[in-house]
Design a protein around this nucleic acid. Sequence first.
RNA 1: GGCGACGUGGCGGAGUGGUGACGCAGCGGACUGCAAAUCCGCGUACGCCGGUUCAAUUCCGGCCGUCGCCUCCA
Length: 492
Amino acid sequence: MTLTLYNTLTRRKEPFEPIDPKNVRMYVCGPTVYDLAHIGNARPIIVFDVLFRLLRHLYGEQHVTYARNITDVDDKINARAVERFPEMPPTEAIRKLTEETTAQFHKDIAALGVLPPTVEPRATDHIAEMRVLCDELVANGHAYVGEDHVLFAVGSMPDYGKLARRSLEEMEAGARVDVAPYKRGPMDFVLWKPSKPGEPSWPSPAGIATPGRPGWHIECSAMAGKHLGNVFDIHGGGIDLVFPHHENEIAQSRCAHGTSVMANVWMHNGFLQVEGEKMSKSLGNFVTIKELFDEWRGYSWPGQVARFAMLGTHYRQPIDFSQDALDQASIALSGFKTWAADIPGASPSREFMDALSDDLNTPRAIAELHRLSQLAQRGVHEQTDRMTKPGAMLEKLEASPAAQLSASLSFLGLDMESYDRNWVQNQSRLSISEEQSAKIAQLISARLAARKAKNWAESDRIRDELAAMGIQLKDGKDPQTGEAITMWEVKR
RNA sequence: GGCGACGUGGCGGAGUGGUGACGCAGCGGACUGCAAAUCCGCGUACGCCGGUUCAAUUCCGGCCGUCGCCUCCA
């Protein structure tokens, strides 16, 4: 089994070869903590969590370092902090905002079954490293100072634009931004900028007297360099980050460290839409992770359902996040829950691992889940037959489809232990009042009596009456006594 | 305007130069007094127009459509 990953740098799938198998290093761009994380934010977090699990499986838990940052210095943060806590001094307001948002982020993604990364560096803890990068870049001629800003000189790097596959000329020709007077080249970008009064500020690098704060891209270069080294294995994020964020990270890091690459493999997940439309606040279809758990479209969705729905589409494809997708995920998980058996020592099936190893082909892996589930069902039926015969023996339990199914689900980070396969029905019942509930129970016992008397007309009439109330009946037998019992649920 | 991605059956969604993954829905059957649930079975789809090829959904070119990036954005 060889791990193959699609590399944005080469636009090809390539066999993955770590620089050091004893220390495989991956960096993923984490959130800017100014507001609740939304389901678009959740996609890379989930996708790279799966990759993290796969890498740990392949190289050993102790041999993988996964860094995912928290960006807690940013203009949006400053603006939001003042807006939300106008009574506080700005620096205090900013700390309160970033701490609260970070805590909620951790809560949200934990519910999505996401493992904590090995390190989760914060931008504000790495200001010194950013200053050093600025100094180095100015010293070696890749950056310059203008009006108390430090700017990266894009023209000083011959292959700037390689990741995004754009040439400087075409970018400059198509540029729609006004060029600030302190820029030498129109595409030059800010590494450090002066702070206005009230804004967070730190002593500036490159001999600038005015206190300042970092630009957007520098924090990732600083944190990745510190925790993973000047060159590491995998760098991931959303496809919208390819340009300018990742391109600029590459420029800063490579020019500061004098390396030919920053990371060997660059991975990008596709964009997310909601019900076929771009997710935006103005369209009113903005969905936060927290909202999904609290209430979205009438349900509070289990984290497993959201996670599974997200993995149903290959990570590089655009994904349409919809209620229909969540419903289908929920149905599939309920089926798996029924047939999976948690057997110690079990492993995911070969095909499952092969699918994941093929550039994280989660849809193919999920197809394998369905196959195992089907085999498990058949196995149960066959076993029931065999159990009735003397000498029936269960062999190789840990290699059984039910065990493999369970292990595969667990590998994907889907906690089936806590997943309630009847969660939809149970939630629906919450909307039924006490009186309705009593009425339903009364009708059901009347119908049972009618059925006992083989009065099918009356029995069916009652079922229709309940159906008109939106109640679906399910007849069955008590497994112990064999007595007829009737369950009900709210029709969807 | 520049750059890029995508367009597969009713829906979702893999994949492949030549035997139609997988799921949902639907249909048929088993079970049931009848249903529901469950189980079994059933599907000749790859945006359009050209080209390459013995053979293209799969490769190449053009067109159309959707989306993204170029400014903050996962």
